[in-house]
Design a protein around this nucleic acid. Structure first.
Ligand SMILES: [Mn+2]
Ligand SMILES: [Mn+2]
Ligand SMILES: [Zn+2]
Ligand SMILES: [Zn+2]
Lengths: 142, 142
DNA sequence: CCCGTTAATAGTAATGGTTTTCATTTCCAA
DNA sequence: TTGGAAATGAAAACCATTACTATTAACGGG
């Protein structure tokens, strides 16, 4: 991380290092505020603004990705490699789906319309194992 | 539209009808504010709040879908049937991709994790025909 | 057709996530 | 070690969206 910052001409600060560690240490796709809380114990004076600024910088440097879902604040993913996500409509959890997606999924669209695809985003919506079984229970009762 | 509203127990108002027409008459996936502007000539006194409330109602009634993209306000799609979108990073346009997507795209993930998929979302990011050719021009020059 | 009831609207204030501002602190190259 | 620039903390501003409230208008029953 130090190297990434230096190479890009940015200063290495305690705040940046700690936020980076926090992101690396979780797979929960936290929001900015959640990261703020994760980091407060080690940086009692940090401000939420700095968290936002740092995450925005990390996004530009390509060390994380920002995930935008309907009706909820942005979430941040310490894994910058392309992968997909499953969002639970029950508990809100965001799970990784390390699903290989067909390489040529957009090729026909591209050929037909001249649209030059540089990336795509795939999201599954539904219910995680826990929420799905809760729902089945309730169905049986109600 | 009248019927849909009545059947669901809602009143048929001029605002609702005009907003519905505006949505039907475009394929541009407008934002709430854009719809507000489209509709002002026929409803000079309408408020932006009414546009938002109406769009939210239509979403619940299933006559439109809301599209959420990173870094831009919600867009609304008068076509409620599942289909996918391509977002141009040059001009911001949102195009329809009537691409058939493999039915079983998430089946393995579902089987492996117990996640119950009820829907998915696929988006292509890149450059529309116009923006792609502009970019090629600039490449040759610069 | 004409009310009376009550849902819907216009106008405006409030909200909440995010960005900006600015004085102060910290980093770091010389 | 130090001067200058970059980054931070604290707070204000921003902006899309939602909530509030007095007024308007839809519409079922007379
Ligand atoms: Mn992830
Ligand atoms: Mn569409
Ligand atoms: Zn769940
Ligand atoms: Zn374009």
């Amino acid at each position: 991380m130090k190297e990434v910052l230096k190479r890009a001409g940015y200063r290495v600060t305690r705040q940046r290092l700690v936020i980076f560690e926090a992101l690396r240490g979780t797979t929960s796709h936290p929001t900015a505020e959640e990261i703020y809380n994760m980091v407060k114990s080690r940086l009692p004076n940090i401000s939420l603004g700095t968290v936002y600024r740092t995450l925005e910088l990390f996004e530009r440097l390509g060390v994380l990705q920002r995930l935008t879902f309907e009706g909820s604040p942005s979430r941040f993913d310490g894994n910058p490699k392309p992968h997909y996500h499953a969002i639970c409509l029950g508990c809100g959890r965001v799970l990784d789906a390390d699903e290989p997606v067909p390489e040529d999924i957009g090729r026909r669209f591209s050929e037909e319309t001249g649209f030059e695809i540089v990336g795509y985003k795939l999201e599954f919506y539904g219910y995680c194992k826990e929420c799905a079984s809760k729902r089945r229970e309730n169905e049986n009762k109600g």
